[in-house]
């Protein structure tokens, strides 16, 4: 069973990400039994068929970097898991998608980063609202994944407001004026 980082710990995970093969139609793809994360296109096309599994908490939806998270807004209360795919780690659209899901659409369930998810992006991913990080299978050894927990909070007191820090530093902390500091 693959291991992922969830809520700050390394955990076993049995969700299966369903990716369409080249040319495969979202309307026709077969969904395995058990916990599955389906592409947005499949969800939008087959919503009536999939609702029961979503309500049972065994079906999540993943967004591609080019997807508009607003398309999922009406369903966010029913979904326990939403994932965002990073086709390449340097493709940063997923950070904005996560931010919008958390801060605009009020999504409070599990938000999982999938695809090319690397340790050195964990801090930024976490602050944009991802609470589950699923590196590509085989990218990290179990020991490396354990060590990677150290990268979850590289910056202890970031300047910005974000999904995890609703206030920017200047509203969150008392920052001393020059005259308040000893010379």
């Amino acid at each position: 069973m693959p291991e992922i980082i969830k809520n700050g710990r390394v955990q076993h995970d049995d969700w299966q990400v369903v990716r369409l093969a080249e040319g495969e139609a979202a309307s026709a793809t077969a969904l395995p039994a058990g916990r599955v994360i389906v592409p947005l296109a499949a969800w939008l096309l087959r919503r009536d068929e999939l609702l029961a599994r979503a309500d049972a908490g065994v079906l999540g939806v993943w967004l591609a970097a080019s997807d508009d998270p607003a398309a999922l807004a009406p369903d966010l209360l029913r979904l326990q898991l939403v994932a965002v795919d990073f086709p390449k780690f340097a493709d940063g659209r997923g950070y904005s998608i996560a931010t919008l899901l958390r801060t605009r659409h009020g999504y409070a369930g599990e938000l999982r980063a999938i695809g090319e998810v690397l340790r050195d992006q964990f801090d930024y991913l976490g602050r944009c609202g991802f609470d589950a990080l699923q590196p590509a299978p085989g990218r990290y050894t179990p020991a490396q994944l354990q060590a990677a927990l150290a990268s979850l909070a590289t910056f202890s007191t970031p300047y910005q407001a974000s999904a995890t820090h609703p206030q920017p530093l200047f509203r969150r902390a008392h920052r001393p004026a020059a005259h308040e500091e000893a010379a």
């Binding site: 340097a90 493709d91 940063g92 904005s96 930024y124 976490g126 910056f155 970031p158 910005q160 920017p168």
Partner: peptide, 13 residues
Amino acid sequence: RQWSTFHPEFAYL
């Protein structure tokens, strides 16, 4: 500068 330093959303533009 402070706003843009380690802004989590805009590090991979």
